[in-house]
Design a protein around this nucleic acid. Sequence first.
DNA 1: TACCACAGTTGGCGTAGCGCCAATAACGCG
DNA 2: CGCGTTATTGGCGCTACGCCAACTGTGGTA
Lengths: 229, 229
Amino acid sequence: MATTPAPRWQRLDHDERRRQILACARRLFSERHYAAVSTSEIAREAGVARGLLHHYFRTKRELYLEVVRALVRVPSHPVPEADDGRTVEEQIEDSVGRWLETLRRNRGTWLAANGAQGLGRDPEVEAILEQAREHAIDSLIVAIRPGDPATAPPELRAVLRAYSGFAEAASLEWLERRRLTREQAHALVVQGFFSIVRDALPAVERLAPQPGRASNGNRKINHVRKAVQ
Amino acid sequence: MATTPAPRWQRLDHDERRRQILACARRLFSERHYAAVSTSEIAREAGVARGLLHHYFRTKRELYLEVVRALVRVPSHPVPEADDGRTVEEQIEDSVGRWLETLRRNRGTWLAANGAQGLGRDPEVEAILEQAREHAIDSLIVAIRPGDPATAPPELRAVLRAYSGFAEAASLEWLERRRLTREQAHALVVQGFFSIVRDALPAVERLAPQPGRASNGNRKINHVRKAVQ
DNA sequence: TACCACAGTTGGCGTAGCGCCAATAACGCG
DNA sequence: CGCGTTATTGGCGCTACGCCAACTGTGGTA
C-alpha cells in the first residue's frame, strides 16, 4: 500500500505567489536599504527557493522597482476628492484630514517611500516617484481650478509641488519626529496651502516669462484668495 | 650603469590620496545608485588598486557614507548669515539669493543629495541628513528670534522644517524641472517663508499641547508678522 | 482510477564583487 | 647609499546574483 508522500512544496497560482513574494520583499526593503537585503533572504522569508524570485522578477533590481511602484500607491500629499459642490475650503480641510489618517494607517509604507532620502541619482526610481507626484498634483489642480489640469500653467504646477514638499515635511514632523500633534500637523498643512496659494502663487505669476499667460482661468483660485482671511 | 627604473606607481600623502579617491567615488555615486557602482570601478577611475579603497575606507558602505557627509556640506535650504543689524526681511531676501546662487554652482552635488529619493530606511544616511538639516534650522531660528536656538519650542523647529521642505521642492522646480525661472524661485521661497511664519506658525502655536509654552520670546517673530504685508 | 501534459518550483553551476591580508616597493632620513 | 616606514599592490576566500536544466505538484482526460 504505497501511500502518496506528502508534497514537499505547494503549487500556487501565478499571481498569488507573485503577490506573496512581493509582500515579503516590500517588508524587507522598507526596513533596510537595497544593498542590505539579499535575494536569499527574501526567498527564505517567502519560503521559496531563490531561483523562483528570478522566475517572477527577472532581477533583484526589477523586484525592487516593483516594490517602489507598490509603495507610491500611498499619495505623497493631500489629494481632494472629486468636486462635490462643497467649497474649496471644505474640500481642502477634509482632504488633509483623510490624508493624515491614511498616513497613520500606512505609516511604515509611507515613511519608506517619502521619509527616506537615498543618495545618488536613480533615474528609474525617480521616474516612478515623479509620475506619482505629478498625478497627485493634477487632483489638486482640479479642486482649485476648473478645466483640464493638463492646460494648467507650469508655474501653478511648480508652486503646488513646492506646497507638496511642505506638506510632506510637515507630516514627517508629526509621524517621525513627533514635534507636532496630529491637530497641529493638520492646521499647518491646511493653513500652509491657503497661504501659499494666496500669497506665493501670485508673487510667482507676476514674474511670468511671457506676461499674461496665466491671466485667465483662475476664477476658482481667486475665490480661494478672497475667501481665506 | 643600472639606471633606476621608473616608479610603477606614485606614493602620495595619506590625506591627498584619500581626497582623490573620495572625489572619484563622489562623482560616480552622484551619477548612479549605490549598487550600480562597484569598488573596482571607483579604483580604476582613481587609478589605484581596489585594495587601496579598503585601506582608506574599510568597506564600500563606509566610503559611501563619507561621500554623503561631503555632499550635505551644501545646505538644503537658505540659511541667513549672522545677524548684522539689518532687518529680518533683508536678511531673508539676501540669504535666499545667496542660496540659489550656491545651488546653481553646485547643481550636481545638491541634486544628488536632495533631488534623489531612494527607498527603504537607511538610518545611517538619514542621521547624516537629519543632523545637517537641524543645524541649518538653527541658523534660521537665530535670524528670526533672539537667544539660544536650543531653547526654541519644538513647534517652531517643526514649522521651519516644513518650510525647508517647501524651499527644497521649489528649488527643484527651478533647477531640475525648469518650470520656474530663477527670479520666480526666489520670489516663491521668500514669499513662502513670510507667509508660513506669519500664518501657519501661529495656527500651530494656538494648538500647543501645553498652553502658554511658546508665548514668550517671540518678539522678533512678531516683528516679522507685522512687517510682512 | 490511472495517465499525461503543463507550468510552478527546485537546486546547482558560473561569474562578479567585496573584505582581508601578506608581500612589495616608493620615499624620506640618517 | 642603505634602511626603515608605510603607502600600495595582488591574490585568496566567500557571498550574492543571474541563469537554466531537471523535477514535481496539479488539474484535466479517457
